[in-house]
């Protein structure tokens, strides 16, 4: 009896080998490598921030890694409202607002069109819809440079060349392949019976889109929004080609500030201007990293 009791007590509790501790050699190597990689990527940002907070005399000392002795926000103010680009000396602020005016409608229009495209391609398959989709996807692989000049001609013919609306059209068109792919894959992954049920309930093309599909598409909308906001905000090429100096987006102005040949190079102002230009995409990444990764995965898994 007593023997049996000892036996059972020995059998209670976890069995087998203990899981490895936190500081096994393997983990040290993994975390070490991760730390090195993280350090490597964070370093430039650190240098930029530190430099932007220094005055020019301190920068001339040449120690780019040292923190500022005397913190000054003068370069930030100058970058925003005083730095000169060509004829204007009102800093990045003009470019910032131009970019906002370009980005907001471009993002909204391209997502609106692409979501309807994706919905139609996944649920209302028409004769030749696969061919249509294939052509659209091939469009994503043609280098932009090839399409630049034809696009200029098209916009000129439409009377939109050099205007903000022209640039919005360009961004909408070039965002179409990847966004349509994104939405099509998302809507295809939704249960087909949902669509059938809505049809039996009597909803039509737009009824199903607005009442059923759109409310379910919020996650992919967020993903598309992130892709488009960062993409259009960072655009340089289209901004230069399809607008005139009055409408130059922030990226183009940044280039003009940093690359202006006259006078002394104001590294602190340049750094502040660069951070200001990258602030919006950076904020978007930080605030929505989870959705961003999910979006990349959603777009990549099925073709």
């Amino acid at each position: 009896m007593a023997e049996a009791a000892i036996h059972t007590s020995a059998l209670q509790g976890p069995q087998g080998r203990r899981p490895k501790s936190l500081l096994s050699p393997r983990r040290i190597v993994i975390y070490g490598l991760l730390l090195v990689a993280a350090f490597y990527y964070i370093l430039p940002l650190y240098v930029m921030i530190v430099t932007s907070l220094k005055g020019m005399p301190e920068i001339r000392l040449g120690n780019i890694f040292s923190p500022p002795v005397e913190v000054t926000f003068e370069p930030w103010v100058k970058a925003w409202s005083q730095a000169c680009t060509g004829l204007n000396c009102d800093g990045l602020s003009r470019g910032f607002w131009n970019t906002v005016i370009i980005t907001v409608p471009s993002v909204l229009v391209s997502i609106a069109v692409a979501s309807v495209n994706g919905y139609a391609l996944s649920n209302w398959r028409f004769r030749g819809s696969d061919l249509f989709f294939t052509i659209l996807i091939i469009g994503a692989f043609i280098p932009y440079q090839v399409m630049l000049y034809p696009m200029v001609i098209i916009l000129r013919t439409m009377g939109l060349y050099g205007s903000l609306s022209g640039l919005i059209v360009v961004h909408t068109v070039f965002g179409m392949p990847i966004l349509t792919l994104l939405f099509r894959n998302y809507f295809t992954a939704l249960p087909a019976e949902l669509f059938k049920a809505a049809r039996v309930d009597g909803a039509g093309f737009w009824g199903i889109y607005f009442h059923i599909m759109l409310p379910m598409a919020v996650p992919i909308m967020v993903v598309a929004m992130i892709l488009q906001v960062t993409g259009i905000w960072n655009d340089f090429l289209f901004g230069v080609v399809f607008t005139k100096p009055d409408y130059y987006p922030m990226t183009v102005q940044l280039n003009n500030i940093v690359n202006s040949v006259q006078g002394v190079k104001e590294y602190n102002v340049n750094m502040a201007a660069t951070i200001l230009t990258g602030a919006v995409p950076l904020a978007v990444y930080f605030l929505s990293g989870r959705y961003f990764v999910r979006g990349i995965a959603a777009g990549a898994v099925k073709g």
């Binding site: 249960p191 019976e193 949902l194 059938k196 049920a197 809505a198 049809r199 039996v200 309930d201 009597g202 009442h211 059923i212 409310p215 379910m216």
Partner: peptide, 20 residues
């Protein structure tokens, strides 16, 4: 005819309830 005009109601395997 369109499904809605046929005088039919349908129940699906996956229930197909509108989640929102």
């Amino acid at each position: 005819l369109e499904p809605k005009d046929r005088g039919i109601g349908m129940v699906f395997q996956s229930y197909a309830l509108y989640p929102q």
